[in-house]
Design a protein around this nucleic acid. Structure first.
Length: 632
RNA sequence: GGGCCCGUAGCCCAGCACGGAUUAGGGCGUCAGCCUCCGAAGCUGAAGAGCGCGAGCGCAGAUACCAUGGGUUCGAAUCCCAUCGGGCCCGCCA
């Protein structure tokens, strides 16, 4: 987008000035000025040069500015260079030209999406154990991962979204225990989703029963063994149940706007033989060794040379531990092993129309080009950091530098506020309580969305008395999704989100609905006009109000926000951008008349600005998976 | 014992990645305003970041201010070290 071009011009000006004034190689950096009245872009190079050459920063700035003023005339967007007495160089934008170009680009459909990079990226996210409904902690994972997928695609990467299903773990096995050995029905009661039924009524129940009757716990290992074997009546039954749970979970995922390209199954990774191959290689390379003494005697371990500790990877009974299932998956992703899988269409329609595939061990097609990515990103909560590090270390030992291509996007958990946890019937000592699926302490996404939707519905109905119920329903759904996604995305991933049910129901202030409202406001202007959005250099020059200029400038920074999001694997940069753009638009809206403007050329230019900025807002919302409506 | 993360107004957060220009921004809440004017899910203003008390004032203000104390620097909310408080991880569970 055009702001980046302006930046480049400024960087070149500065670099040339440094060279011609004999300052030598200086790292040119430009950034946003601290506030208005300091131009549109600033550079502190003069401070650095002053230090190097022991001159006063103001003098350096003055010299450089006078050098650049002449050259600036040859640029497209740099209107002027102003030295500041503190030693900064401030550059101002030629707004007429800039507005004309920026708005023109966007109206022609150029929203800053980048050309293909050729980089193949896998993003693994969601990964909910198939034994319960998604709770709001899972939603944080999904929102982060799904938004990241969108952002990276916008940045030109070839991205596949992966969802890993742990269908051979104890959490899932416990559901089978409940169904098979506690005699619980394998149909959910009317009105209850199957995933919620399994999580809320079976899994928690089985956990309680384990405490009461120790014999039952043996059934868990029986189920695990049968599942691992992969054949027989119990295994077939488990397969059927996992499919039902997954289908219910995916409904929620899709409702949240996520979509996936591939489902990976833990059971298939185990059966694929990848681990045996990798294990063999690790043995011959001496990365793992058979411990002969101490408490790990009889186990294959990875020694940590720094701490002297060991991580067991194969138990003394010969079975592989959890990380040993993660290692082949990771190696498969970045192409350190051959692709043993075949692929089949999973057969359900996703919201964005993308085809969802599933791995199979036989009966599918080969060579779907999922494995062997340049970069693999795993969105997994911070508690798995240690294990992810071990995985990365093993990858490095298989292939020098491999861990640079295997990235863990960690994020902190979602906890429940004291008030919310207590309302669920739990006693809380501190300020908040960690969720626990086992204990039944969590807030399901579907439940939360239902509450949000009801609140949104009441508000929407109040404002639109003559609309149909279907319309109100659609809008309320969009508001509910936006509220939840924005809430989970806007906060720093390193910080725990303390979720408070009341607080989260807010539809005002810095929320998702603010974005929808702003978009609808903008579209309203375009609906109500007789004019046509159009712009040329002459009409662009008539837009001189600070609110107009701020809006144009902000709008042209979407690509910069997305780049930052991609660089730091942090899509909330886009959420922040969307919010800032919405603020800029509302400021414009309150202070600048569009349809009442008497000068038709200026009116049309403003219409063009409204059209363009609303398109950018919509695009930024799409990147973070927030739906928008022309009216709400 | 080892490691990771967090600590910014009553509450929640942004700013920290690359140290700089100032009133350290925003939301919630509180108080006061704005719909004969393109949608009030919006916007504007005030109070709120140190100390004291009769809670509104007073004291500060070459400046005090981002948990506390040091350090680096011409310059620190931002970098480094230590300390305190909170959370998490370190299993032949997954």
């Amino acid at each position: 987008m055009r702001f980046r071009e302006f930046e480049k011009e400024v960087e070149e000006l500065v670099a040339r000035a440094c060279a011609s004034l004999g300052y030598g190689e200086v790292e040119v950096e430009v950034g946003p000025p601290p506030g208005e009245g300091y131009g549109d872009l600033s550079s502190a190079v003069s401070l650095r040069i002053a230090k190097k050459t022991s001159q006063s920063p103001a003098d350096v700035a003055l010299k450089m500015a006078s050098k650049m003023t002449e050259e600036a005339k040859g640029t497209r967007y740099v209107a002027g260079v102003v030295p500041h007495r503190a030693g900064y160089l401030n550059f101002t934008l030629d707004y007429a030209r800039f507005s004309c170009d920026s708005i023109g680009d966007i109206l022609r459909g150029d929203l800053g999406a980048m050309p293909k990079t050729g980089r193949k990226v896998l993003v693994e996210h969601t990964n909910v154990n198939p034994n319960k409904a998604l709770h709001i902690g899972h939603a944080r994972n999904l929102v982060l991962g799904d938004s990241l997928v969108n952002v990276l695609r916008y940045l030109g990467d070839d991205v596949r979204a992966l969802n890993y299903i742990d269908d051979s773990g104890s959490q899932f096995a416990d559901v089978i225990v409940g169904l098979k050995f506690l005699g619980l029905p394998d149909e959910a009661p009317a009105g209850v989703k199957f995933d919620a039924y399994c999580g809320d009524r079976i899994y928690t129940r089985v956990t309680q029963e384990y405490a009461k009757s120790p014999g039952l716990k043996e059934k868990e290992s029986l189920v695990l063994r049968e599942i691992e074997k992969g054949e027989g009546e119990l295994a077939e039954y488990a397969k059927k149940i996992v499919g039902k749970i997954l289908a219910a979970q995916l409904e929620t995922c899709w409702r949240l706007g996520a979509s996936y390209d591939l489902l990976n199954w833990e059971s298939q990774i185990v059966h694929s033989g990848m681990w045996d191959e990798i294990f063999g290689r690790l043995k011959s390379m001496g990365v793992v060794k058979l411990e002969s003494q101490g408490e790990n005697a009889g186990c294959w371990v990875i020694p940590d040379t720094e701490t002297g500790e060991q991580k067991v990877v194969v138990r003394s009974d010969g079975t592989a531990v959890y990380v040993a299932k993660d290692i082949p998956y990771a190696a498969w992703k970045i192409g350190l092993v051959g692709d043993p899988f075949e692929y089949q269409v999973y057969g359900a329609k996703q919201p964005d129309g993308a085809v969802l595939n599933s791995t199979v061990l036989s009966g599918g097609v080969k060579g779907m080009d999922f494995s062997g990515a340049d970069i693999a990103i795993s969105v997994i909560d911070v508690r798995q950091g240690y294990l992810q590090k071990i995985v990365a270390k093993v990858l490095d030992s298989m292939n020098e530098g491999a861990s640079k291509r295997y990235l863990h996007r960690a994020y902190e958990v979602v906890a429940l506020s004291k008030a919310t946890a207590e309302r669920l019937g739990f006693e809380v000592e501190g300020e908040f309580a960690h969720m626990s699926g086992r204990a039944g302490l969590y807030v399901n996404v579907d439940t939360m969305l239902a509450s949000l939707k009801e609140r949104a519905r009441a508000e929407t109905r109040k404002r639109s008395l003559s609309e149909t119920d279907a319309w109100v329903d659609d809008v309320s759904e969009a508001l509910a999704i936006s509220a939840l996604r924005y809430e989970l995305l806007k906060q720093d991933p390193d910080k725990i989100i303390v979720f408070d049910a009341d607080e989260a129901l807010r539809l005002q202030g810095d929320t998702g609905p603010y974005l929808l409202y702003t978009y609808a406001r903008a579209r309203r202007i375009l609906d109500k006009t007789d004019g046509r959005p159009s712009i040329d250099l002459g009409s662009a020059a008539k837009m001189t109000k600070p609110q107009e200029l701020r809006l144009v400038k902000r709008m042209s920074m979407l690509d910069a926000a997305a780049s930052k999001a991609g660089e730091y694997l942090s899509p909330r940069e886009v959420a922040k951008f969307a919010h800032e753009l919405a603020v800029a638009f509302n400021d414009f809206y309150e202070n600048v008349q569009v349809n009442k403007e008497a000068d038709p050329a200026l009116r049309d230019a403003r219409l063009a600005l409204v059209d363009a900025s609303s398109k950018v807002l919509a695009k930024s919302m799409t990147l973070i998976g927030i739906p928008y409506r022309t009216r709400i």
